[in-house]
Computed example of a mutant assay.
Amino acid sequence: MITLRHAHERGHANFGWLDSKHSFSFGSYYDAAHMGISALRVINDDKVSPGAGFTPHGHKNMEIISYVLEGAIAHKDSEGNVAVLPAGEFQLMSAGTGISHSEFNASKTDDLKFLQIWIQPNVIGTKPEYQQKHFGQALGLTTIASADGKEGSLRLKQDATLSQLILAAQSQLTIEVSPSRHTYVHQVQGELSINHHKLNAGDGAHISEVQSITLNNVSDQQVTALIFDLP
């Protein structure tokens, strides 16, 4: 079964300096039908004005992934981590017993665009951790985060895997999925067809009770998506 969540159906919050689209209930946006998929709790598609950002705030017992689409994030946290995340970079912050951090647009002239993703951990009360890595632009599937850190991926405190999909123009890929687990696809760039269901940028697809999916790029442009394998 494939259930689509179109970009225009997402929640929306605009604070002037921040324009955010919510795939699932978040902040003042609440929809009982869209509270997350399994352990995947948040996908926020954020645009931050030049020089603006999130002042220090706390998190606890949450796996927080940031994926920079355009621009760069200036990050500081209470564990002493100070970093800049450029476009294409992935950051995983395991909040554990508690961590405070700030995120600002590192540019004074250009917008910052990034995805903020929250995954509920399967262990709580752990020491906060910080990981950051650029995984390149290889075609096909690249493992970004996983429970065991396989293939050099970020180590996630949950029985889940996040993969980056990049398909060249006029190409397709068939992957096996477990019918007893949940698969969620978030379309980042371009148009993708999943078993003949079309996704555009910002769209999502919840996939369950199937054994395989065919990902097809019928356009003349490269497409990018994130694929979550969830318990």
Rank of each mutant, 00 (worst) to 15 (best):
M1Y: 03
M1F: 04
I2P: 08
H12P: 06
G16W: 13
D19L: 08
D19E: 11
S20W: 05
K21N: 12
F24E: 13
S25C: 14
S28L: 15
D31L: 05
D31M: 07
A32V: 06
G36F: 07
S38W: 01
A39I: 13
V42T: 09
D45W: 01
D45T: 02
K47A: 09
S49D: 12
P50K: 05
F54D: 03
T55V: 08
H57L: 01
G58E: 01
H59F: 00
M62V: 09
M62H: 02
M62E: 10
I65C: 02
V68K: 02
A72F: 01
H75A: 03
K76Y: 04
K76F: 03
D77L: 04
V82E: 14
A83I: 02
V84E: 13
L85V: 03
L85C: 02
A87T: 08
A95L: 00
T97H: 08
S100L: 01
S102Q: 10
E103H: 13
F114H: 08
L115G: 01
Q116G: 09
I117G: 10
I117T: 09
W118I: 07
N122D: 15
K127A: 15
K127W: 00
P128V: 00
Q131M: 14
Q132L: 12
Q132S: 14
H134S: 15
H134W: 07
L139G: 12
G140D: 10
L141N: 12
L141Y: 14
L141S: 12
L141R: 13
T143M: 06
T143P: 08
A147V: 11
G152S: 13
G152D: 08
S153W: 05
L154G: 12
L154H: 14
L154Q: 13
K157G: 06
Q158F: 11
T161I: 15
S163D: 05
Q164K: 15
L165D: 06
L167Y: 08
A168K: 14
Q170E: 14
V177R: 03
V177N: 01
P179K: 11
R181F: 05
H182C: 09
H182N: 15
V185F: 04
H186I: 10
H186A: 10
V188N: 07
E191P: 00
H196P: 06
H196E: 15
L199G: 07
N200R: 14
G202W: 01
G202S: 05
G202K: 05
D203I: 12
A205W: 01
I207E: 04
V210E: 02
L215R: 02
S219P: 00
D220A: 10
Q221L: 08
A225H: 01
F228A: 10
F228C: 01
P231R: 00
